[in-house]
Amino acid sequence: MALLKSTGLCKYFGGVHAVDEVDFEVEKGEKVGLIGPNGAGKTTLFNVITGFLRADSGIVEYKGNNIVGLRADQVAQMGIARTFQIPVQFRGQTVFENLLAGHIKEERKNFWHALFNTRDYREEQERARQKALEVLEFVGLADWKDRLVDVLPDGLRRFLSLGRVLMMSPELLLLDEPLAGLSEEEISALLSKLDELQGQGTTIFMIEHRMKAVMRFCPRIMVLNYGRKIAEGSPTEVKDDPVVINAYLGTREG
C-alpha cells in the first residue's frame, strides 16, 4: 500500500483548475520530486494534501485513510510534516525556541499539567529540549542556538525549517522548495541530511526548481503543468520528455 496516494484530486479557484485530476502515489521510504513551471499548481497540491485547502473532488489517502477534509493540524498529527515555500519563522524567538515549537505535537501532557508544572510536564519539556539539541546538531545550527531567528541568514532559515519539522518525528516530509536561495555548498549539506533521514525511514516528497539538485537527489520525478500531471518517471526520462520540455519553454500544444 502506498504511503500517500491521491486519486482524481481537483482544486478549482473560480474557473482556474489549480489542481486538475491529479493521481499519484508515493511509497514509503521514497524520495520523490515534484517539478513544473511557475503556477503549475505544485504548492496548491501540497496545500490540498496537508489540509490548508480543501479539495473540490478526489481523495487523498494516507496509509489507506482518506484525509480529505481534515484540518491542517489534524494532518500534521498524523505524521505528515510540511515546510513552506517562503520560510516562516516565529520572529523574536531564538533558534532553539523555534525548534522547540516543532515538538508541540508530541507533547501529551495537557493544560492542567502545564499549569501546575507537574513532574510529568517537566520531564516532557526536558525530553523536548534534549531532542531539540540533537536536531540542532543535525541541521548544523548549533552555533546559532541562542541567537534570534531574525538575524539568521536566509540560507540557514531553510535548515531551521527543516529542523523544526523534524521535531515532529514525521513519517512523511513535504518540502516546498527547500533549496531556494541556497549556495551549492548548502544544497549539498541539506541534501545529505535528507538522505540520512531517508535512511532512517522518512519519506520525502519535495517541490523544487533547482533542476540539477532535484534530478540528482530524487530517483523519481513528477511533473505538473496547469494543474495536470503531465509526466512521471526517472530524472533522465523526465528530462528528455518533449512534453515536459514544451511545458517549460511555454510552447502550447494544439
Partner: peptide, 26 residues
C-alpha cells in the same frame, strides 16, 4: 504559569504565525 509554559508558547505561535502553528499540529 501560562506565559512561562507550553500553553503560553502555543498562544504566541498562534498569534504570530497561525499557519505555521497549524502545520505543526496546533
Amino acid at each position: 504559569r501560562v506565559e512561562a509554559s507550553r500553553i503560553g508558547r502555543v498562544y504566541s505561535y498562534i498569534g504570530m504565525a497561525p499557519d505555521l502553528a497549524e502545520s505543526l499540529g496546533v
